[in-house]
Design a binder for these strands. Sequence first.
DNA 1: GAATATTGTGAAAGATTTGTGAAGTATTGT
DNA 2: ACAATACTTCACAAATCTTTCACAATATTC
Lengths: 226, 226
Amino acid sequence: MCLEKKTVLIVDDEEDMRFLVSMYLENSGFACLQAKDGEEALQIIRREQVDLILLDIMMPKMDGFTLCARIREQSDVPVLFLTARGDEWDKVKGLKLGGDDYIVKPFSPGELIARIEAVMRRVYQEKHRNGGLSFGPLCIDEKGRKVTVDGETIVLTLKEFDLLLFLAKHHGQVFSRDDLLVRVWGYDYTGNARTVDTHIKTLRIKLKQGSHFIKTVWGIGYKFEV
Amino acid sequence: MCLEKKTVLIVDDEEDMRFLVSMYLENSGFACLQAKDGEEALQIIRREQVDLILLDIMMPKMDGFTLCARIREQSDVPVLFLTARGDEWDKVKGLKLGGDDYIVKPFSPGELIARIEAVMRRVYQEKHRNGGLSFGPLCIDEKGRKVTVDGETIVLTLKEFDLLLFLAKHHGQVFSRDDLLVRVWGYDYTGNARTVDTHIKTLRIKLKQGSHFIKTVWGIGYKFEV
DNA sequence: GAATATTGTGAAAGATTTGTGAAGTATTGT
DNA sequence: ACAATACTTCACAAATCTTTCACAATATTC
């Protein structure tokens, strides 16, 4: 539910920095993941649920701007930039990369936490309502395991519901079939990945007008897009 | 909702914490009682009317789990756990002690109030009618432990009634058989989950037209749906 | 535009879950 | 102690869901 620990991914090439920030955050009740470069970050985003990304702008290999753009291709997760000098922020703004906020180094622990919580609040506000998700005509009641489209109840099977719920909860993010098998079916599931296709198919049929949210990402997998 | 002040009992060994939470709540229109340990809490529950309990899990003497179990022996008052780390919730769930929700520390005042009000709404919504629940032809008189369908009295056994009452009170929500065993039979019940099926069966037979509210949710359990 | 890879789809086999009757166990009342 | 009632367990049939597979449709690459 909404009050689980939030997970923050820290992307920075300096190990000390990652470690320090990680300490701050964990003391404040966040779970932390770390990535030392863009590649690692992108992989983690695919595999794990990440609620916010702390992104250093200055990094070798792939810089923060580029990485943010790549992240945005597959996910709506909020991004908070870390920048060493204030003037770099102009670049961020100029490039309009969809970062949600920024912090200038060096920052105090309190400032960092406050910023993160502000972003979280802003982005996840809707989710905090009643545990139910709503996208246009499509409503998903998690506790009641009930789905409606234009007020009409749609009867879904166990896996159909779990799959839809997962995609909707992580809307904006692309998942491969294998990702979905792990996250929805369970890490120990060993079966044909095409099973996902079949469930997507029945979901699309059953959801009718609500099915347009489920997009095929050719060569990758599926995503729920608002 | 009714405009009486609701009373919240805060159970925490740290005085500062009790005081702080108490402030939040009183500013939001709740009346507060405080207990520093399990013994004190149990005494207060016996003496005073308490509408909700905020319970810290980590406490010396009697921990929150144990206390919740003791409370459940004598009262249905909703319990909201406070936990310092997210992973403790696994324990709560694992032990299935019948807490109604949980909050991870540190939490914002707004979050706390929202959670409390959500639980209050759910739990007390129905009670405020007149102590009885009514769904179409089906009436459930909690205090009199009497059920009627189309005015005709239906004789239910203890477990049948408790099961029906629990489902009806939490209508719209799906429960697994294990959830029901914990919440209706008690946290320390160790028996076959299929027992629930048998009681559902007899309920369906006895309730006749009133039985349509009880839905099977394939692969999960049962729910009461209006 | 042909070859290749990926996704959509219908149908059937396979697996799981639920409904149910009956038998066994526990509890209560006399 | 006995009977009556309630509760639990069990086994099997029935219902339902999940997975697989083959082939069609579509997108991408060369």
